[in-house]
Nucleic acid binder design. Structure first.
Lengths: 149, 149
DNA sequence: TATTGTTATACTCTATAACTATA
DNA sequence: TATAGTTATAGAGTATAACAATA
């Protein structure tokens, strides 16, 4: 993709670095969304599964992590539960709370999608040599460190 | 945001550069989505408006640009037209085709959101000095050039 | 026959508001 | 009173399938 080919995304063509960041974001998100779709889950669901990879979390906490309403999370969790990818159980310490956690099928899906994403993005990053990859990584982290929260 | 704070997005924590790219994509998309939301439009609509910034385009072409179905575009265009942000007119050269284009209000909105996005992302990129910004820009473009068309 | 666009339908994601149960 | 979660409702975004009009 050459700069001139990026064409119709005119809205975001607003400068130097900012433009590149936005273009990279669109390309990356497109890959993530496509891989998620290939595995029959939405990007939001994938993020939920990722959070649950190594812990049990309540509905409100899940919603807060992703910046969504609790009612939205209730729906997301319900649909995933119906598909057998995660489960709900009452929290023993708090009668109001519900713990959400992955099933074996859900955990398997996370790892599978995981690998799929890595393999899909790798060709892009491999355009750079090892030293350049490290440099890009470092620069991106510095930008991220100055970002929101 | 320190590396250790990126926490719950565990799914995507799969390596060095790829992880940074994904995190940067999420942060950038969150900014774009928020700015769009502040202006009462979705990210998809914003992309449509951006394409129309300097041309008239048919429904099918718009859908292709964004990788969506024509029927989806019919809905997007219809809702934006109802709000007076863009308009439809029959294409004089092809009786089947419809030209979509921005209204004055739509054009004004694009420019306003445009500036808003630039001002919101600038603080992040300003964490780097001028030379580093150029270096990051160059590296990102090289990665993008090797990505999906 | 192929293409352009719309309509009908259905599902997911999202939010707001009202509600129950527990703290 | 405040918090955790659900339900009801509504709207946007998305896709598939069927369709009309034009090429």
């Amino acid at each position: 993709m050459n700069r001139s080919d990026r064409a119709p995304d005119g809205v975001f063509d607003q400068g130097e670095l900012v433009d590149s960041l936005v273009q990279a974001a669109f390309v990356t998100m497109a890959v993530l969304t496509e891989v998620a779709g290939d595995n029959e889950v939405s990007l939001t669901q994938l993020r939920v599964f990722g959070i649950l990879r190594d812990r049990r979390v309540g509905v409100t906490a899940l919603a807060n992590y992703l910046g969504l309403e609790k009612s939205t999370m209730t729906g997301l969790v319900g649909r995933a539960e119906k598909r057998g990818l995660l489960q709900r159980a009452p929290n023993p310490a708090d009668g109001r709370a519900v713990d959400v956690f992955l099933t074996a099928a859900g955990a398997e899906l996370v790892e599978r999608v995981h690998g799929h994403i890595a393999r899909t993005l790798a060709p892009m990053t491999d355009a750079l040599g090892p030293a350049e990859q490290r440099r890009l990584d470092t620069l991106l982290r510095r930008v991220l460190d100055s970002g929101p929260s």
